[in-house]
């Protein structure tokens, strides 16, 4: 006995029938067609399509009859034992838990590394600025020296090491006149 007997095709309201047809086909795939739906489907499909739907219904019914595999009677107990003995209590405040986990995790060493690098860079920068400032001061003071009055010539200053040895502390330039004289006489 055929599950669905073809009754005939409907010619009007085609667009709506397609939606309804798809819906009924879905029910057939799930094996959920009731008698009314079956009758309606019979009206919408030709014999070949109905045969396909019948096969779909049959397959669905078979798949729904697949037996269940046995599960151990102590399955739930074993799961609960594992989660309750190996895991700490769930912290009620997730945000604090996140902070705690991060503090004890990767954040601390990474933060220390970043801070160390930052301090090192700042120190280097500071030292570089100090050195540069010192060089500028030296150059300014050297520039203030009057070549004629001090008995020095520009030639002497070509040797930067010499300039470095000049004692420029204080408001007046205190140069190592002995050294300069020696250089001049070279």
């Amino acid at each position: 006995m055929k599950l669905l007997e073809p009754v005939g095709l409907l010619n009007n309201g085609t667009a709506m029938n397609k939606t309804e047809l798809n819906k009924l086909k879905e029910l057939a795939l799930k094996g959920l067609l009731d008698e009314k739906s079956k009758a309606r489907l019979s009206q919408l499909l030709n014999s070949e399509e109905l045969a396909q739907i019948e096969q779909d219904i049959a397959l669905s019914k078979l798949l729904q009859k697949l037996p269940s595999y046995p599960v151990s009677s102590n399955f739930t107990d074993r799961v609960m034992e594992t989660i309750q003995t190996k895991e700490p209590e769930v912290v009620n405040i997730p945000f604090l838990r996140l902070i705690w986990q991060n503090l004890t995790g990767k954040l601390v060493p990474v933060s220390l590394l970043i801070i160390s690098i930052a301090i090192g860079y700042m120190s280097y920068n500071e030292a570089r600025k100090t050195k540069l400032a010192g060089s500028i001061i030296e150059l300014e003071r050297v520039a203030m020296l009057d070549g004629k009055n001090s008995g020095l010539s520009v030639e002497v200053f070509k040797d930067f090491d010499v300039i470095q040895k000049m004692n420029l502390a204080g408001s007046s330039s205190m140069v190592d006149l002995e050294l300069l004289t020696a250089l001049k006489n070279q």
């Binding site: 599960v71 739930t76 799961v79 609960m80 989660i83 769930v90 912290v91 009620n92």
Partner: peptide, 23 residues
């Protein structure tokens, strides 16, 4: 409830889904 720390409730979910999961 489980999110709030009631781990015992999880057993209900285990009993409910162990068979379909196994299948």
């Amino acid at each position: 409830k489980i999110k709030k720390g009631d781990s015992e409730v999880f057993a209900i979910l285990v009993d409910k889904y162990k068979q379909p999961l196994m299948n």
